[in-house]
Design a protein around this nucleic acid. Structure first.
Lengths: 162, 162
DNA sequence: ACCCGGTGGTTGATGTGTCAATTAGACTCG
DNA sequence: CGAGTCTAATTGACACATCAACCACCGGGT
């Protein structure tokens, strides 16, 4: 009954091929992140987290954001951001400024050094993305990768709601 | 010259669309890993790392491996494995055994509790992979995802060699 | 005015990953 | 054998993520 079994819709565990695709997908994306991260670090002294923070700030009005808005922008938990901001502040990349309209609040803004580091990191980072992602794939594959990711995300959000 | 520019082969930074695909790809794969990881943790008390270690051991001859063979199997650095093994040992999931043929060496083997935890974790984990990855995609997309990952990996390895 | 629930943000504990340095046994060659 | 070298594995220091308290302030109701 093996044949009927593998064709049945109620099957619960992935096939060998599906599993291979899964492993390849998840392991490679991980490796890619890590290679890109260490390149960024080597070239600019910024971690991927630092870059994300500085990118969000650079896109903000007046280069400053409330801590929780920043957290929303980059999709981090408050606590994670708070710890990270602390480390970045110690390194002189950003500053915490008290918020005038809410005494609880903090506004985050990059220092001159932070802005410089981000400007220096940006172009090489984008080039690395091109080299390691875009250039590795056919144009159709790049599109497909985006669609696959979108489908996964949509499914994930649907699953999370339930 | 904007048109000629964007068509030139020497272009160094990704287009907006390419960048969107990249961000979607990398962020989604990350989120997927994290959701799957917390499910595993919730259902079995094992982290993704624990699972990888126990899986490799379960596939080994006699359920035991030299520390560095284990590291190779799962693609970790020695040091990372050593730290992780220490934590797993403290939790009673595995044991370190001295190696007879090489006094420097350690062999790693799961405890009864470790084997139980792995057995209990395995089926739900595979089901979760099916639910969150396989079921989110068309069969063609699953294949494409595997091919994209393979292409990225191949390109990455080639880049690393240089 | 006062209490109280909600919110913005921080903190500490713990688990995890990386790098560089270290320890200790194995191996080789004169 | 003995010095130099290679290798297996561990260690310590640090960056990072997550979780569960926690503190201080806001704002609304009475």
């Amino acid at each position: 009954m093996a044949k009927a079994d593998s064709a049945a819709s109620g099957r619960r565990t992935p096939t060998v091929d599906e599993l291979r695709a899964w492993r390849s997908f998840i392991e490679t994306s991980d490796e890619l992140r890590s290679v890109l991260g260490s390149r960024l670090q080597a070239e600019s002294g910024l971690s991927a987290g630092d870059y994300a923070v500085l990118l969000a700030l650079s896109e903000a009005e007046k280069s400053r954001l409330r801590s929780s808005e920043l957290a929303d922008h980059i999709g981090w938990e408050r606590s994670r951001l708070s710890h990270h901001i602390g480390r970045m502040e110690r390194r002189g990349l950003i500053e915490r400024v008290e918020c005038l309209t809410d005494n609880r609040g903090a506004e985050i803004t990059p220092t001159a050094a932070g802005r410089d580091a981000f400007r220096g990191a940006s172009a090489p980072h984008l080039r690395a993305i091109r080299e390691l992602f875009v250039d590795a794939l056919t144009p159709a594959q790049v599109v497909a990768a985006g669609e696959i990711a979108d489908a996964l995300r949509a499914h994930l959000d649907r699953a999370a709601q339930r």
